[in-house]
Amino acid sequence: MIQSLLDGILVGSILSLGAIGLTMAMHMLRFANFAHAELLSIGAYAALVFDGLFSALFPPLAAAIAPLSLTWALSLAIIISMAVTAGSAILVDRFVFARVRAIGGELSMVFASFGVALVLRNLISLIFGLKTQLYSQDIVFAVVISADPLLLVKPDQVFALVAALVIMLILHLVLSRTTLGYSLRAVAENPTLAQVSGIRLSRMIALIWIIGGGLAAVAGVFYGLTNQISPVIGRDLVLPIFAATIVGGIGSIYGAVLGGFLVGIASNLALVILPSGYSPAVPFLIILAVLLIRPNGLFGEARE
């Protein structure tokens, strides 16, 4: 039970990172982006490629940072991966979403994101193969935190949790303390007024993708680090991440953070009762529960 709670918190940090970007795009670009979770896959694989590259070019970097399985090479690769993923998100927006936005409605965007997700996911399968991969073949043993009740935690999980929290704190400071943050909120509230107030919309859209893509990349790498890397990361995480945004209330960044943790914890606790085969369905049950009890989520505003 407590172990499930612990695991839930660890998974939750990954979901939160994914949900922040998704909720921002849903709020400011006004569409549910079904391709968002594919950014996590892109991030995970981009880091895999650069991790391999750095390790091969500078073998000393391939040393693990004790007690983690994370290597110096992978740490560097995460930063590159954030840039690659943000770049991919901007490219997809420029080439696909911008055009659909210009000629169609919000739901055409949802529809297009559905198609984009299918293409991205299968392109990744085609390039990297269907098999699962790992960043490190080294086995890192879990640390026993407590013997009774038995509580185990892997150092990598703790690192991922702490790093995720630090990143969220930085984002919070940027959004609440800088004019850049106000600008984003202004665009979300009233795009036309934001424009005539001197805010360049295309820059803000790019910024949303940079933040969303960067966070998704980190989430993808952490998922790969604590689980494994496979082309279906996006498929498996798209529903939990959506559930996190709905729990938190669409558009609320803090809601997304809390929603991520809640969904992570609830999913793990649910498996105490349910056989593990049912785990993909749990986020849907959470969505149903939120829609029944509090349709606008914890921090969401009622909006058509």
Binding site: M26, A32, L239, I246, I250, F284, L285, P295, N296, E304
Partner: peptide, 21 residues
């Protein structure tokens, strides 16, 4: 009665849940 994309998300979820079940 909610924002349009709730239906998109819920129906997507119902399909995942259905297959899982």
């Amino acid at each position: 009665r909610l924002r349009h994309d709730y239906l998109a998300i819920a129906t997507f979820g119902v399909a995942v849940a259905f297959e899982t079940l």
